[in-house]
Design a protein around this nucleic acid. Sequence first.
DNA 1: TAAGTAGATTAATGAAAGGTTAATGAAATT
DNA 2: AATTTCATTAACCTTTCATTAATCTACTTA
Lengths: 234, 234
Amino acid sequence: MEPKNQKILLVEDDPALGYLLREYLTMNGFSIHLAKTADEALRLMEEQFFELAILDVMLPDKDGFELAKIIQNKYQELPFLFLTARSLKIDVLKGFSMGAVDYLKKPIDEEELVVRIKALLQRLHPSKPQEKTTGGMISVGTYSFHLKNQLLQRDGTSTHLTKREAELLHYLLMNKNNLCPHKEILNHLWGKSDYFNKKSLNVFISHLRKYLQEDPSISIENIHRQGFILKIEG
Amino acid sequence: MEPKNQKILLVEDDPALGYLLREYLTMNGFSIHLAKTADEALRLMEEQFFELAILDVMLPDKDGFELAKIIQNKYQELPFLFLTARSLKIDVLKGFSMGAVDYLKKPIDEEELVVRIKALLQRLHPSKPQEKTTGGMISVGTYSFHLKNQLLQRDGTSTHLTKREAELLHYLLMNKNNLCPHKEILNHLWGKSDYFNKKSLNVFISHLRKYLQEDPSISIENIHRQGFILKIEG
DNA sequence: TAAGTAGATTAATGAAAGGTTAATGAAATT
DNA sequence: AATTTCATTAACCTTTCATTAATCTACTTA
Protein backbone atom coordinates (compact mmCIF):
# COMPACT_ATOMS: atom_id res chain seq x y z
CA MET A 1 0.00 0.00 0.00
CA GLU A 2 2.45 2.59 1.17
CA PRO A 3 5.09 3.63 -1.33
CA LYS A 4 7.89 1.67 0.31
CA ASN A 5 11.59 1.87 -0.31
CA GLN A 6 11.67 5.31 1.15
CA LYS A 7 14.90 7.08 0.36
CA ILE A 8 17.15 7.88 3.27
CA LEU A 9 20.35 9.85 3.14
CA LEU A 10 22.96 8.43 5.48
CA VAL A 11 25.92 10.70 6.16
CA GLU A 12 28.62 8.68 7.89
CA ASP A 13 32.35 8.78 7.33
CA ASP A 14 33.25 5.62 9.19
CA PRO A 15 33.13 2.94 6.45
CA ALA A 16 32.50 0.08 8.83
CA LEU A 17 29.49 1.67 10.47
CA GLY A 18 28.31 3.15 7.19
CA TYR A 19 28.20 -0.11 5.32
CA LEU A 20 26.73 -1.96 8.26
CA LEU A 21 23.89 0.48 8.64
CA ARG A 22 23.28 0.59 4.93
CA GLU A 23 23.09 -3.17 4.81
CA TYR A 24 20.76 -3.34 7.73
CA LEU A 25 18.46 -0.55 6.65
CA THR A 26 18.32 -1.85 3.10
CA MET A 27 17.26 -5.23 4.45
CA ASN A 28 14.43 -3.42 6.15
CA GLY A 29 13.03 -1.94 2.99
CA PHE A 30 14.72 1.43 2.85
CA SER A 31 16.70 2.79 -0.03
CA ILE A 32 19.93 4.04 1.49
CA HIS A 33 22.19 6.59 -0.13
CA LEU A 34 25.48 6.82 1.67
CA ALA A 35 27.55 10.00 1.74
CA LYS A 36 30.95 10.06 3.37
CA THR A 37 31.25 13.82 3.67
CA ALA A 38 29.00 16.79 4.21
CA ASP A 39 29.79 18.09 0.76
CA GLU A 40 28.83 14.82 -0.84
CA ALA A 41 25.62 14.88 1.14
CA LEU A 42 24.79 18.36 -0.06
CA ARG A 43 25.41 17.32 -3.63
CA LEU A 44 23.05 14.38 -3.30
CA MET A 45 20.38 16.55 -1.74
CA GLU A 46 20.60 18.95 -4.66
CA GLU A 47 19.45 16.34 -7.09
CA GLN A 48 17.34 13.94 -5.10
CA PHE A 49 14.53 13.88 -2.64
CA PHE A 50 14.98 12.08 0.65
CA GLU A 51 12.46 11.22 3.29
CA LEU A 52 14.99 11.45 6.08
CA ALA A 53 18.64 12.30 6.68
CA ILE A 54 20.74 10.46 9.24
CA LEU A 55 23.72 12.57 10.21
CA ASP A 56 26.82 11.59 12.06
CA VAL A 57 27.86 14.46 14.27
CA MET A 58 31.54 14.00 13.52
CA LEU A 59 32.44 14.36 9.87
CA PRO A 60 35.76 14.96 8.16
CA ASP A 61 34.89 18.18 6.33
CA LYS A 62 32.04 19.81 8.19
CA ASP A 63 30.56 19.44 11.60
CA GLY A 64 27.32 17.45 11.54
CA PHE A 65 25.59 20.35 13.23
CA GLU A 66 26.77 22.68 10.53
CA LEU A 67 25.32 20.37 7.93
CA ALA A 68 22.07 20.28 9.87
CA LYS A 69 21.92 24.04 9.86
CA ILE A 70 22.20 24.08 6.09
CA ILE A 71 19.47 21.47 5.81
CA GLN A 72 17.27 23.55 8.09
CA ASN A 73 17.62 26.53 5.82
CA LYS A 74 17.59 24.96 2.43
CA TYR A 75 15.45 21.87 2.82
CA GLN A 76 13.06 22.74 5.60
CA GLU A 77 10.92 19.76 4.77
CA LEU A 78 13.67 17.22 5.28
CA PRO A 79 13.67 15.74 8.79
CA PHE A 80 16.99 14.65 10.17
CA LEU A 81 18.33 12.73 13.13
CA PHE A 82 21.78 12.58 14.67
CA LEU A 83 24.12 9.75 15.46
CA THR A 84 26.88 10.49 17.90
CA ALA A 85 29.73 8.85 19.72
CA ARG A 86 29.99 11.64 22.21
CA SER A 87 27.32 11.43 24.81
CA LEU A 88 27.84 14.95 25.99
CA LYS A 89 24.61 16.46 27.13
CA ILE A 90 25.46 19.71 25.43
CA ASP A 91 25.43 17.81 22.15
CA VAL A 92 22.07 16.23 22.75
CA LEU A 93 20.63 19.57 23.65
CA LYS A 94 22.19 21.25 20.66
CA GLY A 95 20.91 18.53 18.37
CA PHE A 96 17.32 18.80 19.46
CA SER A 97 17.31 22.55 19.63
CA MET A 98 18.37 22.55 16.00
CA GLY A 99 15.26 20.67 15.08
CA ALA A 100 16.50 17.09 15.02
CA VAL A 101 13.66 14.58 15.17
CA ASP A 102 15.73 12.09 17.12
CA TYR A 103 19.16 11.60 18.59
CA LEU A 104 20.91 8.23 18.96
CA LYS A 105 24.06 7.47 20.82
CA LYS A 106 26.68 5.06 19.57
CA PRO A 107 27.06 2.18 19.70
CA ILE A 108 24.01 2.06 17.48
CA ASP A 109 21.56 -0.74 17.99
CA GLU A 110 20.55 -1.33 14.38
CA GLU A 111 17.30 -2.95 15.29
CA GLU A 112 16.25 -0.05 17.45
CA LEU A 113 17.32 2.40 14.79
CA VAL A 114 15.03 0.75 12.27
CA VAL A 115 12.14 0.80 14.69
CA ARG A 116 12.67 4.44 15.50
CA ILE A 117 12.94 5.39 11.85
CA LYS A 118 9.74 3.58 10.99
CA ALA A 119 7.90 5.21 13.86
CA LEU A 120 9.26 8.59 12.86
CA LEU A 121 8.30 8.36 9.22
CA GLN A 122 4.87 7.17 10.14
CA ARG A 123 4.35 10.08 12.48
CA LEU A 124 5.67 12.53 9.94
CA HIS A 125 3.29 11.38 7.24
CA PRO A 126 -0.12 11.47 8.82
CA SER A 127 -2.52 10.24 6.18
CA LYS A 128 -4.62 13.05 4.78
CA PRO A 129 -7.97 13.27 6.48
CA GLN A 130 -9.61 14.33 3.22
CA GLU A 131 -8.64 11.14 1.49
CA LYS A 132 -9.88 9.09 4.34
CA THR A 133 -13.32 10.62 4.52
CA THR A 134 -14.03 10.96 0.84
CA GLY A 135 -12.36 7.77 -0.21
CA GLY A 136 -10.06 9.73 -2.46
CA MET A 137 -12.72 11.86 -4.15
CA ILE A 138 -11.50 15.41 -4.39
CA SER A 139 -13.43 18.26 -5.96
CA VAL A 140 -11.63 20.39 -8.50
CA GLY A 141 -13.84 23.29 -9.47
CA THR A 142 -16.75 21.65 -11.29
CA TYR A 143 -14.73 18.50 -11.80
CA SER A 144 -14.27 15.73 -9.31
CA PHE A 145 -11.11 13.75 -9.12
CA HIS A 146 -11.01 10.20 -7.92
CA LEU A 147 -7.43 9.66 -6.93
CA LYS A 148 -7.50 5.94 -6.47
CA ASN A 149 -9.15 5.27 -9.81
CA GLN A 150 -7.26 8.05 -11.56
CA LEU A 151 -10.56 9.33 -12.85
CA LEU A 152 -11.46 12.91 -13.61
CA GLN A 153 -15.18 13.50 -13.94
CA ARG A 154 -17.43 16.36 -14.99
CA ASP A 155 -21.10 16.23 -15.86
CA GLY A 156 -21.53 12.76 -17.22
CA THR A 157 -18.17 12.41 -18.88
CA SER A 158 -15.10 10.98 -17.24
CA THR A 159 -11.48 10.93 -18.31
CA HIS A 160 -9.00 8.35 -17.28
CA LEU A 161 -5.69 9.85 -16.17
CA THR A 162 -2.39 8.07 -16.36
CA LYS A 163 -0.43 7.46 -13.19
CA ARG A 164 1.84 10.46 -13.60
CA GLU A 165 -1.03 12.74 -14.52
CA ALA A 166 -2.97 11.66 -11.47
CA GLU A 167 0.03 12.05 -9.18
CA LEU A 168 0.73 15.50 -10.50
CA LEU A 169 -2.85 16.65 -10.21
CA HIS A 170 -2.97 15.29 -6.69
CA TYR A 171 0.19 17.09 -5.71
CA LEU A 172 -1.05 20.36 -7.14
CA LEU A 173 -4.36 19.95 -5.38
CA MET A 174 -2.67 19.35 -2.05
CA ASN A 175 -1.10 22.77 -2.57
CA LYS A 176 -4.08 24.44 -4.17
CA ASN A 177 -3.54 28.15 -4.87
CA ASN A 178 0.02 27.93 -3.68
CA LEU A 179 3.22 27.90 -5.59
CA CYS A 180 4.67 24.45 -6.05
CA PRO A 181 8.33 24.86 -6.90
CA HIS A 182 9.60 22.73 -9.78
CA LYS A 183 12.09 21.09 -7.55
CA GLU A 184 9.54 20.01 -5.02
CA ILE A 185 7.19 18.61 -7.62
CA LEU A 186 9.99 16.74 -9.33
CA ASN A 187 11.37 15.39 -6.11
CA HIS A 188 7.98 14.23 -4.98
CA LEU A 189 6.99 12.54 -8.20
CA TRP A 190 10.30 11.46 -9.68
CA GLY A 191 12.53 11.39 -6.62
CA LYS A 192 15.04 13.60 -8.33
CA SER A 193 15.24 16.85 -10.20
CA ASP A 194 17.06 17.36 -13.47
CA TYR A 195 16.67 18.81 -16.93
CA PHE A 196 14.79 15.89 -18.43
CA ASN A 197 12.30 15.54 -15.60
CA LYS A 198 11.50 19.15 -15.99
CA LYS A 199 10.77 18.61 -19.65
CA SER A 200 8.50 15.71 -18.77
CA LEU A 201 6.76 17.80 -16.16
CA ASN A 202 5.91 20.37 -18.83
CA VAL A 203 4.29 17.70 -20.91
CA PHE A 204 2.11 16.55 -18.04
CA ILE A 205 1.17 20.09 -17.11
CA SER A 206 0.07 20.51 -20.67
CA HIS A 207 -2.07 17.38 -20.45
CA LEU A 208 -3.73 18.52 -17.23
CA ARG A 209 -4.50 21.92 -18.69
CA LYS A 210 -6.24 20.23 -21.57
CA TYR A 211 -8.29 18.00 -19.31
CA LEU A 212 -9.30 20.89 -17.07
CA GLN A 213 -10.07 23.43 -19.77
CA GLU A 214 -13.85 23.05 -19.53
CA ASP A 215 -13.91 24.96 -16.26
CA PRO A 216 -12.58 28.49 -16.74
CA SER A 217 -12.27 29.00 -12.98
CA ILE A 218 -9.42 26.50 -12.96
CA SER A 219 -6.00 27.40 -14.23
CA ILE A 220 -2.50 26.07 -13.90
CA GLU A 221 -0.20 29.04 -13.91
CA ASN A 222 3.50 29.10 -14.34
CA ILE A 223 5.75 31.29 -12.24
CA HIS A 224 8.80 31.81 -14.35
CA ARG A 225 11.80 29.90 -13.06
CA GLN A 226 9.94 28.92 -9.90
CA GLY A 227 7.10 26.53 -10.39
CA PHE A 228 3.38 26.12 -10.94
CA ILE A 229 0.23 27.16 -9.14
CA LEU A 230 -3.07 25.40 -9.55
CA LYS A 231 -5.54 28.22 -9.14
CA ILE A 232 -9.18 27.60 -8.44
CA GLU A 233 -11.35 30.70 -8.12
CA GLY A 234 -14.38 31.01 -5.92
CA MET B 1 6.88 33.68 24.46
CA GLU B 2 5.72 30.09 24.38
CA PRO B 3 2.66 29.17 26.44
CA LYS B 4 4.70 27.58 29.21
CA ASN B 5 3.71 25.40 32.10
CA GLN B 6 2.41 22.75 29.83
CA LYS B 7 0.66 19.97 31.70
CA ILE B 8 2.31 16.58 31.64
CA LEU B 9 0.96 13.38 33.10
CA LEU B 10 3.69 11.27 34.63
CA VAL B 11 2.74 7.69 35.41
CA GLU B 12 5.43 6.15 37.58
CA ASP B 13 5.04 3.84 40.56
CA ASP B 14 8.57 4.08 41.90
CA PRO B 15 8.35 6.97 44.38
CA ALA B 16 12.04 7.82 44.18
CA LEU B 17 12.09 8.17 40.43
CA GLY B 18 8.65 9.74 40.36
CA TYR B 19 9.49 12.54 42.74
CA LEU B 20 12.86 13.11 41.17
CA LEU B 21 11.42 13.50 37.72
CA ARG B 22 8.60 15.66 38.95
CA GLU B 23 11.07 17.94 40.67
CA TYR B 24 13.26 18.16 37.66
CA LEU B 25 10.53 18.69 35.11
CA THR B 26 8.81 21.25 37.31
CA MET B 27 12.07 23.15 37.54
CA ASN B 28 12.04 23.22 33.78
CA GLY B 29 8.71 24.90 33.51
CA PHE B 30 6.33 22.00 33.15
CA SER B 31 3.31 21.33 35.29
CA ILE B 32 3.66 17.72 36.38
CA HIS B 33 0.80 15.56 37.59
CA LEU B 34 2.04 12.35 39.08
CA ALA B 35 0.01 9.16 39.02
CA LYS B 36 1.23 6.03 40.79
CA THR B 37 -1.06 3.59 39.04
CA ALA B 38 -2.72 3.19 35.69
CA ASP B 39 -6.13 3.63 37.28
CA GLU B 40 -5.11 6.87 38.89
CA ALA B 41 -3.76 8.03 35.55
CA LEU B 42 -7.05 7.23 33.84
CA ARG B 43 -8.96 9.14 36.49
CA LEU B 44 -6.76 12.19 35.98
CA MET B 45 -7.18 12.02 32.23
CA GLU B 46 -10.92 11.97 32.66
CA GLU B 47 -10.94 15.37 34.24
CA GLN B 48 -7.94 17.16 32.78
CA PHE B 49 -6.21 17.85 29.54
CA PHE B 50 -2.54 16.95 29.22
CA GLU B 51 -0.07 17.85 26.54
CA LEU B 52 1.90 14.67 27.02
CA ALA B 53 1.88 11.43 29.01
CA ILE B 54 5.05 9.80 30.26
CA LEU B 55 4.39 6.15 30.99
CA ASP B 56 6.48 3.70 32.89
CA VAL B 57 6.20 0.32 31.24
CA MET B 58 6.03 -1.55 34.55
CA LEU B 59 3.13 -0.57 36.73
CA PRO B 60 1.55 -2.31 39.70
CA ASP B 61 -1.99 -2.64 38.38
CA LYS B 62 -1.79 -2.52 34.60
CA ASP B 63 0.95 -2.97 32.09
CA GLY B 64 2.15 0.36 30.67
CA PHE B 65 1.39 -0.92 27.19
CA GLU B 66 -2.14 -1.67 28.19
CA LEU B 67 -2.54 1.85 29.48
CA ALA B 68 -1.12 3.14 26.22
CA LYS B 69 -3.68 1.15 24.29
CA ILE B 70 -6.48 2.79 26.24
CA ILE B 71 -5.00 6.20 25.63
CA GLN B 72 -4.77 5.42 21.94
CA ASN B 73 -8.45 4.61 21.81
CA LYS B 74 -9.88 7.15 24.16
CA TYR B 75 -7.54 10.12 23.85
CA GLN B 76 -6.13 9.83 20.37
CA GLU B 77 -4.72 13.33 20.54
CA LEU B 78 -2.60 12.72 23.59
CA PRO B 79 0.98 11.86 22.70
CA PHE B 80 2.80 9.53 25.04
CA LEU B 81 6.31 8.24 25.57
CA PHE B 82 7.62 5.25 27.48
CA LEU B 83 10.17 4.86 30.22
CA THR B 84 11.50 1.41 30.75
CA ALA B 85 14.02 -0.49 32.81
CA ARG B 86 13.97 -3.44 30.49
CA SER B 87 15.99 -2.81 27.42
CA LEU B 88 14.48 -5.71 25.54
CA LYS B 89 14.22 -4.91 21.91
CA ILE B 90 10.81 -6.43 21.74
CA ASP B 91 9.68 -3.75 24.17
CA VAL B 92 11.09 -0.90 22.16
CA LEU B 93 9.47 -2.25 19.05
CA LYS B 94 6.17 -2.75 20.79
CA GLY B 95 6.32 0.74 22.21
CA PHE B 96 6.85 2.47 18.93
CA SER B 97 4.43 0.30 17.03
CA MET B 98 1.79 1.40 19.51
CA GLY B 99 2.36 4.98 18.52
CA ALA B 100 4.72 6.16 21.20
CA VAL B 101 6.47 9.37 20.28
CA ASP B 102 9.63 8.40 22.10
CA TYR B 103 11.13 5.65 24.19
CA LEU B 104 13.71 6.14 26.93
CA LYS B 105 15.66 3.52 28.78
CA LYS B 106 16.43 3.71 32.47
CA PRO B 107 18.47 5.01 34.06
CA ILE B 108 16.86 8.21 32.92
CA ASP B 109 19.06 11.16 32.27
CA GLU B 110 16.78 13.92 33.49
CA GLU B 111 18.45 16.58 31.46
CA GLU B 112 18.08 14.63 28.26
CA LEU B 113 14.48 13.82 29.09
CA VAL B 114 13.70 17.51 29.36
CA VAL B 115 15.38 18.26 26.07
CA ARG B 116 13.54 15.46 24.32
CA ILE B 117 10.21 16.54 25.76
CA LYS B 118 10.73 20.11 24.68
CA ALA B 119 11.70 19.04 21.19
CA LEU B 120 8.71 16.75 21.01
CA LEU B 121 6.16 19.30 22.12
CA GLN B 122 7.59 21.83 19.76
CA ARG B 123 7.33 19.44 16.85
CA LEU B 124 3.82 18.42 17.80
CA HIS B 125 2.66 22.01 17.88
CA PRO B 126 3.82 23.31 14.54
CA SER B 127 4.50 26.86 15.62
CA LYS B 128 2.83 28.99 13.00
CA PRO B 129 0.42 27.18 10.73
CA GLN B 130 -0.70 30.58 9.48
CA GLU B 131 2.65 31.28 7.92
CA LYS B 132 2.64 27.93 6.23
CA THR B 133 -0.71 28.43 4.58
CA THR B 134 -0.19 32.07 3.74
CA GLY B 135 3.41 31.53 2.80
CA GLY B 136 4.29 34.92 4.21
CA MET B 137 1.50 37.39 3.47
CA ILE B 138 2.81 40.87 4.14
CA SER B 139 0.67 44.00 4.11
CA VAL B 140 1.94 46.97 2.15
CA GLY B 141 -0.34 49.91 2.76
CA THR B 142 -3.61 48.87 1.16
CA TYR B 143 -1.85 46.18 -0.84
CA SER B 144 -0.94 42.75 0.38
CA PHE B 145 2.13 41.00 -0.82
CA HIS B 146 2.34 37.23 -1.03
CA LEU B 147 6.04 36.52 -1.09
CA LYS B 148 5.98 32.86 -2.00
CA ASN B 149 3.52 33.32 -4.84
CA GLN B 150 5.13 36.60 -5.94
CA LEU B 151 1.70 38.16 -5.93
CA LEU B 152 0.78 41.73 -5.14
CA GLN B 153 -2.91 42.19 -4.43
CA ARG B 154 -5.23 45.14 -3.90
CA ASP B 155 -8.99 45.09 -3.94
CA GLY B 156 -9.82 42.33 -6.31
CA THR B 157 -6.92 42.77 -8.67
CA SER B 158 -3.63 41.01 -8.36
CA THR B 159 -0.35 41.60 -10.11
CA HIS B 160 2.21 38.97 -10.65
CA LEU B 161 5.76 40.07 -9.84
CA THR B 162 8.88 38.60 -11.36
CA LYS B 163 11.47 37.01 -9.12
CA ARG B 164 13.68 40.07 -8.93
CA GLU B 165 10.76 42.40 -8.35
CA ALA B 166 9.51 40.21 -5.54
CA GLU B 167 12.94 39.93 -3.98
CA LEU B 168 13.44 43.66 -4.11
CA LEU B 169 10.05 44.46 -2.66
CA HIS B 170 10.66 41.97 0.09
CA TYR B 171 14.01 43.49 0.91
CA LEU B 172 12.58 46.98 1.03
CA LEU B 173 9.73 45.81 3.22
CA MET B 174 12.15 44.18 5.63
CA ASN B 175 13.63 47.64 6.02
CA LYS B 176 10.40 49.58 5.81
CA ASN B 177 10.87 53.32 6.39
CA ASN B 178 14.59 52.83 6.61
CA LEU B 179 17.28 53.70 4.20
CA CYS B 180 18.51 50.75 2.17
CA PRO B 181 21.90 51.67 0.73
CA HIS B 182 22.47 50.75 -2.89
CA LYS B 183 25.37 48.59 -2.01
CA GLU B 184 23.42 46.54 0.47
CA ILE B 185 20.51 45.97 -1.87
CA LEU B 186 22.82 44.99 -4.69
CA ASN B 187 24.86 42.66 -2.57
CA HIS B 188 21.77 41.08 -1.14
CA LEU B 189 20.00 40.50 -4.45
CA TRP B 190 22.84 40.17 -6.94
CA GLY B 191 25.70 39.14 -4.71
CA LYS B 192 27.80 41.96 -6.04
CA SER B 193 27.64 45.66 -6.60
CA ASP B 194 28.74 47.37 -9.79
CA TYR B 195 27.67 49.93 -12.32
CA PHE B 196 25.42 47.63 -14.31
CA ASN B 197 23.60 46.16 -11.34
CA LYS B 198 22.82 49.62 -10.20
CA LYS B 199 21.29 50.36 -13.57
CA SER B 200 19.20 47.22 -13.29
CA LEU B 201 18.13 48.16 -9.80
CA ASN B 202 16.78 51.44 -11.11
CA VAL B 203 14.67 49.59 -13.59
CA PHE B 204 13.16 47.38 -10.91
CA ILE B 205 12.54 50.30 -8.58
CA SER B 206 10.68 51.89 -11.42
CA HIS B 207 8.57 48.77 -11.88
CA LEU B 208 7.68 48.63 -8.20
CA ARG B 209 6.68 52.28 -8.14
CA LYS B 210 4.32 51.61 -10.99
CA TYR B 211 2.76 48.61 -9.28
CA LEU B 212 2.34 50.49 -6.00
CA GLN B 213 1.06 53.78 -7.41
CA GLU B 214 -2.58 53.13 -6.50
CA ASP B 215 -1.87 53.80 -2.84
CA PRO B 216 -0.55 57.35 -2.34
CA SER B 217 0.59 56.54 1.19
CA ILE B 218 3.29 54.32 -0.30
CA SER B 219 6.37 55.77 -1.90
CA ILE B 220 9.81 54.60 -2.82
CA GLU B 221 12.11 57.54 -2.32
CA ASN B 222 15.63 57.97 -3.49
CA ILE B 223 18.32 59.44 -1.29
CA HIS B 224 20.83 60.87 -3.64
CA ARG B 225 24.00 58.80 -3.85
CA GLN B 226 22.89 56.67 -0.90
CA GLY B 227 19.99 54.40 -1.57
CA PHE B 228 16.22 53.95 -1.38
CA ILE B 229 13.57 54.12 1.29
CA LEU B 230 10.21 52.44 1.03
CA LYS B 231 7.98 54.81 2.94
CA ILE B 232 4.57 53.80 4.16
CA GLU B 233 2.58 56.46 6.01
CA GLY B 234 0.13 55.80 8.75
C1' DT C 1 23.24 78.96 -13.75
C1' DA C 2 26.03 75.79 -16.18
C1' DA C 3 28.35 71.44 -16.05
C1' DG C 4 28.54 67.10 -14.48
C1' DT C 5 26.70 63.23 -12.27
C1' DA C 6 22.84 60.43 -10.60
C1' DG C 7 18.30 58.78 -11.11
C1' DA C 8 13.86 57.71 -13.75
C1' DT C 9 11.48 55.80 -17.37
C1' DT C 10 10.56 53.43 -21.50
C1' DA C 11 12.02 50.55 -25.03
C1' DA C 12 15.06 47.08 -27.36
C1' DT C 13 17.52 42.82 -27.04
C1' DG C 14 18.51 38.11 -26.56
C1' DA C 15 19.04 34.07 -23.87
C1' DA C 16 16.62 30.90 -21.29
C1' DA C 17 12.37 28.84 -20.01
C1' DG C 18 7.86 27.26 -21.00
C1' DG C 19 4.08 25.17 -24.12
C1' DT C 20 2.46 21.94 -27.36
C1' DT C 21 2.33 18.26 -30.48
C1' DA C 22 4.51 14.41 -32.32
C1' DA C 23 7.85 10.53 -32.40
C1' DT C 24 10.01 6.84 -29.89
C1' DG C 25 10.47 2.79 -27.53
C1' DA C 26 9.90 0.00 -23.30
C1' DA C 27 6.64 -2.58 -20.73
C1' DA C 28 2.31 -4.43 -20.06
C1' DT C 29 -1.74 -6.64 -22.11
C1' DT C 30 -3.98 -9.39 -25.44
C1' DA D 1 3.68 -12.15 -31.65
C1' DA D 2 0.80 -8.26 -32.15
C1' DT D 3 -1.25 -4.45 -29.93
C1' DT D 4 -1.91 -1.01 -26.61
C1' DT D 5 -0.43 2.14 -23.15
C1' DC D 6 2.25 5.61 -21.49
C1' DA D 7 6.56 7.92 -19.94
C1' DT D 8 10.14 9.98 -22.08
C1' DT D 9 12.49 12.49 -25.59
C1' DA D 10 12.58 15.46 -29.55
C1' DA D 11 11.30 19.19 -32.36
C1' DC D 12 9.62 23.50 -32.87
C1' DC D 13 7.41 27.54 -31.55
C1' DT D 14 6.10 31.23 -28.09
C1' DT D 15 6.72 33.80 -23.94
C1' DT D 16 9.11 35.75 -20.20
C1' DC D 17 12.20 38.70 -18.09
C1' DA D 18 16.89 40.41 -16.71
C1' DT D 19 19.89 43.19 -18.83
C1' DT D 20 21.41 46.87 -21.69
C1' DA D 21 20.61 50.97 -24.20
C1' DA D 22 18.63 55.33 -25.09
C1' DT D 23 16.61 59.36 -23.59
C1' DC D 24 14.96 62.45 -20.39
C1' DT D 25 14.80 64.73 -15.67
C1' DA D 26 16.66 66.04 -11.14
C1' DC D 27 20.15 66.99 -8.09
C1' DT D 28 24.72 68.94 -6.56
C1' DT D 29 28.23 72.17 -6.55
C1' DA D 30 31.17 75.34 -8.35
